[in-house]
Structure formats: structure tokens, C-alpha cells
Write a protein that binds this DNA or RNA. Structure first.
Lengths: 234, 234
DNA sequence: ACAAAAGTGTTTTTGCTACACCCATGG
DNA sequence: CCATGGGTGTAGCAAAAACACTTTTGT
């Protein structure tokens, strides 16, 4: 006996929700779908899982094809499996969300897939259930980032506190007090102050910080609490 | 065009991690596998996804087959898809964990599947990657229950505070102060004190409480914080 | 009467919030 | 010299933790 007889077999795809932060707002990388059905419409970057490939590998492959990036933060989001989510043939989609440093994204690759960054507030009409996927990813990102220091993954290796605060404010649609924010962030011990400053966005310049990789790995699963409770909603 | 040509199709199964609480410790419901390979070994309850069935439906079906229960708390855990996780043929497994009131579990059904409750601390050797699934489920349960009032799902409709505290202590392997615990729990406003007492586990008897369903649904997504921070590990 | 578990209140500590002024620099 | 954004300290408050005694009742 080498097969489970009589059982249905399904197509299985991966779809990647790729977050980037341009210093001002959160963005998502979308592509123009290259195959029927719905050819030409915007969609998440995805692909079928190969016969001997794990889901993680498939998602990493798809991400690399599109962005040129490897070893980036990537996490399984959810398995979407409604029977009719793809009208052509039943296809399950295992979704992954990733956080990338938008500056490392290789521009030239985008032409091949007609990729474009869209502000998460202005996502165009998408195929299938891709909008649901994005909504879920946004929620999970907020959930996770409230407890773990994952948002650093969206920033370049050297970043300033104002940049970091902008990022948190964008993700949570909140205004935070810079004094409280810096105290909280620095109290984690995860940041190492650099000697040089970023002079681009202000006259005085803001000190760069780097992540303390060792502590980052150690403390990653220590629950944090970055998000202030009161409804500081914008 | 009605099919995506050339792509591999996979078997897709669901597996259920079923948690129960017997008043003293957390347990998991396991079955003796009825088909080859690994026939006769302990495993999670699972089944293949039918052609026109969503993953959620499949998981609910499998759960009902085994326990007779419907409308219980159930949440997608993770999609396991390593190419060789099933030696016979590549099979993806979409896992769900559920929380059931162990007292409502129908005993007679267990014979059909040779089902048995095992303390989570004493799980026997399992097939495939089922142990990984359980580890992940335990972790997610701790994670989720730290923020949301899901553990009530494991208790009967009427329960006492000592029972509830036992449950939390079991899940987190921690000792909690009963004064702080009751204050915290009652401050959520989720519990309604009953007039009668449970006289089984003590001479004095402990008051029963019920969930305020309306508030439960309203407050479910309001982050809670049940678990004390310091390492009160046993 | 005593053992065993239930129930309850206060003090201390900690962490979060709110808040305002000075600094450095490029123009 | 001044406008702009960066950087820092403190006081008040609320939530969490630590902690001990009384109550009930079956045996």
C-alpha cells in the first residue's frame, strides 16, 4: 500500500503578505497576477507548493523571487481553505506574513512581476480572498508586536528612536508620548546607542541605535508591553 | 480552462488537539489509529478534508465524531506540511485545537475510536509529528489564555473560583495567590455569583459562578492579563 | 475540637501616564 | 536668530503583589 485510496487531493499554494515601512507609513507589496483567472488584477505574491517542498520553503522561495531577500522575518499566518475561494479549482492557501526592510528591496525585480508598494490604508481591489488575508495579517501584526519586538524587522540595521516611534504609531494608529516611548523602549535593553546621528530628518540630528542581537534573541519571547492602554487613537 | 495544469495536488487532513480539564489537571483526548501506517498507535483525532468541505467544517466534523460535541471552542492552530511527515504519501495537516467541558464528553463514543484522556504531562509516544502539534497547541493556549478569557470553555456551566484557579495554575504551572486571583477575575465583571455551593471538594463549600454570556462576548477581545508576571513557577 | 478549604482587606511596590522645558543646528 | 525636531526628568496615580486571619462544617 503506497497511497491513501479514494481521498481527494487539493492544490496547495502559499501567499505572502509582505509588510514594509518607508519611514512614514506601513506598506504592502502587491503584484499584478500573471495567470488566469483574474489575470492583470492586483494580488498577493503567491505560488504553488512544489512536490518536495515544505510550506515554509515555498513561502521563502516566493518571497525571494519577488524581493530578492532571504532570511527575513516570516511567520505562518493562517491556512485558507474555503472550497470556492479559487473559482477554477479548489486551492488551499497557506499564508505567511513577512516584515522586510523596505530599503533592501531590490527595485529592478519589481518590473518582472509588476510589483508595487501600497499603503495599507489604500489597498486596491484584490483577487479571491486576498483582502481577508491582509486584514488578518494586520490584526496579527498588531497583536504580536504588542508583545514581542518584531517591528525592528521593518527598519534598517541602524535607526533612530523617532523612526521607531513613527513605526509604532503607524501600526497602532496611535499617538505616543516620546518621553514615555523612549523610556519604555530603552528599558528593554535591546537597543545599543551609536555614536553617529541621522541628520536627514532634522537639523539637530537623532542618534542611531542598533539592536543587541544577543539580547534580542534571548528576550524575544519575554512578553513586552509596548502599547499604551488608553485609547490614544488618532 | 478548468484546471491549473501541471501542479501537484496534496492530501489535506485536519487533526484536532482536544483539551479537557478534569478539575485537577489538563488532559488531551487521543485515539488509537485505525488505519495503516502506524495502525494501533496513539494519535490525535483526524481525518481527510472532503472535497466540498472547508477546513473548519472538517475539524468540527472530526470533533463531533469523536466526542459528540458541537459548537465548542475551536481555533485553527497551524498548517503542518513537511513533505515527509506522513511516510505513505505527502499529506498536509491543518490542525485545530479545541477546549471542551470534559464532563460533557460522551463516554460511549470513546469505544469506537479507542479514545482516552491523557494528562498533558504524560503523553504517550505518538505518530508522525503529532507531538510537535501538541507542544505548539500548549504554547498557543498559554499565549491566548493570558490575554483572553478562553479557559472558561474548559469548565462546566457552573464552576467555583477554586476550580478556576486550579485550571489557571495547571495551564501556567504556577501558584497564584487566591486573594489576588479572585480580585482580578471578579474585576472583569464576567462572572455571576450563584446562590448555591459546590459541597463536593470541601466541607464549607464554594460558591458557584456562571459566565455572563453577554459581557463575555463583548469583552472577549479586550486584552486581559490573568497571569502574574513574577516567576511563580512550581 | 480540629482539620481543611473558602473567603476576605490592607499595605507596599511597581509601572504607567501625564506633562514642559532645554538643546542643537541649518537656514 | 529663530524655527524645527531631538532629547530628557518628575510627580501623581492605578494596578499588581505581598501578605494573614477568620469562617464554615464534616468528621
Amino acid at each position: 500500500m503506497t497511497r491513501y485510496a479514494k481521498q481527494t487531493r487539493l492544490l496547495v499554494a502559499v501567499d505572502c503578505i509582505i509588510f514594509g515601512f518607508d519611514g512614514t507609513e506601513m506598506k504592502l507589496l502587491l503584484v499584478k497576477r500573471s495567470l488566469e483567472p483574474e489575470k492583470g488584477r492586483w494580488s498577493l505574491m503567491g505560488g504553488f507548493v512544489d512536490i518536495n517542498e515544505s510550506f515554509e520553503k515555498a513561502a521563502a522561495r516566493v518571497l525571494k523571487e519577488l524581493t530578492g531577500l532571504e532570511n527575513v522575518y516570516m511567520e505562518q499566518l493562517f491556512a485558507f481553505g474555503e472550497p470556492n475561494r479559487d473559482p477554477i479549482e479548489r486551492t488551499a492557501s497557506i499564508t505567511y506574513f513577512s516584515l522586510i526592510d523596505i530599503q533592501q528591496y531590490e527595485q529592478q525585480i519589481s518590473h518582472e512581476y509588476h510589483a508595487e508598494w501600497f499603503p495599507v490604508k489604500k489597498i486596491p481591489s484584490l483577487i479571491f480572498d486576498h483582502r481577508d488575508m491582509i486584514e488578518m495579517a494586520k490584526e496579527k501584526l498588531r497583536y504580536k508586536a504588542a508583545l514581542h519586538p518584531i517591528l525592528f524587522e521593518l527598519l534598517p540595521p541602524k535607526f533612530t528612536l523617532p523612526q521607531l516611534q513613527n513605526l509604532y504609531e503607524g501600526v497602532y494608529d496611535a499617538i505616543m508620548d516620546k518621553r514615555n516611548f523612549s523610556r519604555k523602549v530603552l528599558s528593554t535593553g535591546l537597543l545599543v546607542k551609536q555614536k553617529d546621528k541621522d541628520k536627514l530628518s532634522s537639523k539637530r540630528g537623532a542618534y542611531y541605535y542598533k539592536i543587541d542581537k544577543r539580547k534580542y534573541l534571548t528576550k524575544f519571547n519575554a512578553f513586552l508591553n509596548f502599547v499604551p492602554n488608553p485609547q490614544n487613537l488618532k
